[in-house]
Amino acid sequence: MDRLRRVLFWVVVGLTAVFLLLPTLITVPMSFTTTSTLEFPPVGFTFEWYGKVIGAADWRAALVNSLVVALAAAILATVIGTAAALALHAHRFPGKTLVMGLLLSPMVTPVIVLAVGMYMVFSGWGLVATRLGLVLAHTVLAIPFVVVSVLASARMVNPSLAPASLGLGASRWFTFRRVTLPLIMPGVLSGAVFAFITSWDEVVIALFLADVRTRTVPIMIWNQVRTNLDPATAAVAAILIVLSALGVLLSYKIREARS
């Protein structure tokens, strides 16, 4: 009885793990198929679909848009979020809980609500169909991740180091640059990676704010998936999966460097 229960338990857990991994694992091999429809298992082996994607002008333009927007949003969110996290960490001020709530609430607001709200406001400000509009919107989504990440790493820093530096006569800026920032750097960097990926993967807001010129890679995938499913989409998916994996690896390396 006891044995049976144990076997059953691990079978359920194992199947759950397969369920989690299956969609990701089948996408990559499918991108190498020589057939014109998506096949699993793939038939033959070709890089043709990758060539098609990389050679297409619209995919290249989307890739540039995605990179520019994600990079700008990551930098903006990291600067704003890190400053806010430091204030929340080192100071008591009235309404601190409220401010914390505000900083984290983009994380729990349904994205579709944000998308239509931003669409209405940004169209009045001439920000629709611009890269700047996308950058601002994605920065809103990314700020909570940076705040959480920097706060976590600030909590591990010895709190008397910054006052010690100031006490020894260093300026505030010097103390920030040479004492505080290096200590919280792992949190800042992993927050930046998170912010980048948030923007890189974002589709709902981009659907409302982007046009043909400013569309990002997720919009291209969305259009493809809605119209025709061909192995080129799987090739894009495979490229993005590899990029995400590199991002994860990077953030783990950063975390490792901390300890």
């Binding site: 991994l21 990701t24 993967d201 589709v203 995938i221 998916a237 993005l240 999966i241 995400s244």
Partner: peptide, 12 residues
């Protein structure tokens, strides 16, 4: 899967 975008997982 947590790191692969929602869109791609729906596609899969």
């Amino acid at each position: 899967p947590f790191w692969v975008s929602l869109l791609l997982r729906s596609f899969s």
